[in-house]
Design a protein around this nucleic acid. Structure first.
Lengths: 194, 194
DNA sequence: AAATATATTGAACAGCCATTCAAAATTATA
DNA sequence: TATAATTTTGAATGGCTGTTCAATATATTT
């Protein structure tokens, strides 16, 4: 129980930060605004996060954690089965409910920070490498792929997924969106059966 | 000649903005700082760009223009030839000198704005669609691809390219970088000969 | 040369920014 | 219950933000 107030307050602050960043953008979210949102003085935020840089780096931890959590159910589900069909996972990757859980705006705003902050860059890299490794493990369970280089394959799949979401986020038209998703999904399937 | 001072000043301001954004980040670049950098009062900047939003939207025009310019030599060169080898173009896409001409940090910072600004989103989309259309035209000149859906193919290629650069920007290690580039390039080649 | 339009200056603005600090309230420890 | 540690408050800071405005300088048109 010791110092659990501290823990929950920190969590509360980060989540408030995330909420406001999602609504008004990362660059428009100040410590004072977070304070007002949570009905606490800004000095309390500074008490737990001595500088804004530190606050931001914790926001990034939170975001990357959330990002990973989206994969988690699929990961869990598929770990239990001995041999799983990667297609189930691919479908999840491209399913709509994914994006509903996660705000790409904040994600890319934070991503833009990797170019001037080595630590943030490393954190992003670590996350992406972990996802690739998981997919590799998954592919290794598929007998059809047993003579394939699954590490390379996992990488190629994620490159398509990441490029897909990058481009998809520019689209306004629902119909076009769905149509492109199908296309990219097919592209990943092709990689699997190559 | 009429009102050419206005034109060059505007250009100067935008380029100064870009330079500072590249150095210190978009969110850390203020009108006052641009003024100091160019040795002009901030009010002169406001004279040409009435609000910061307008200034930013012009920066984005500039960036997307630059982005397109990277492709231009290749586009020009290949347009002249009647039937061109797409591989030459792909190689250019993955060549190192590309990134030297362009700052991904500013590009992705601006990209993050598409999520809360429909106009910016549209501009980004337009650029990416133009590049896809160009590549399609290029692929259409290749006889080996004459029974392929080149529009789809161009899209698939760019998805790999964009996903590749997204992931590559997280890497610190030069050697790993080069190795991944080869891998992604191979992935695009596979699409061509599929 | 006068009148008009454009370009540039510099000072000033309120409002927000991250951050500091000392004091108070609350909780845990002895 | 006294002491110590943690949590919370509220007021204050200087510096930076985008923006306004009236005045001046320079260039263009009449």
């Amino acid at each position: 129980m010791k110092s659990s107030i501290s823990t929950t307050r920190k969590k509360e602050i980060i989540e408030g930060f995330y909420t406001l960043a999602r609504e008004h953008g990362l660059e428009n979210t100040s410590i004072a605004k977070i304070g007002k949102h949570l009905e606490i003085p800004p000095s309390l935020i500074m008490h737990y996060f001595p500088t804004k840089d530190i606050l931001i780096s914790h926001l990034i931890d939170y975001i990357l954690d959330q990002y990973l959590k989206i994969y988690e159910p699929a990961i869990q589900e598929l770990k239990e089965k001995k041999h799983a069909d990667p297609k189930t996972f691919i479908d999840k990757l491209f399913s709509r409910d994914w994006n509903l859980l996660f705000d790409d705006g904040v994600f890319y705003s934070c991503f833009a920070l990797i170019f001037r902050n080595k630590l943030i860059r490393k954190e992003y890299r670590k996350l992406h490498d972990r996802l690739r490794e998981f997919l590799k493990d998954l592919l290794d369970k598929d007998e059809n792929l047993k003579d394939r280089d699954t590490k390379v394959l996992a990488e190629q799949i994620f490159v398509v997924v990441e490029g897909a979401y990058y481009y998809l986020s520019m689209l306004d038209d629902e119909e076009t969106y769905e149509q492109k998703v199908l296309l990219y999904k097919e592209q990943v399937y092709d990689l699997l059966r190559k």
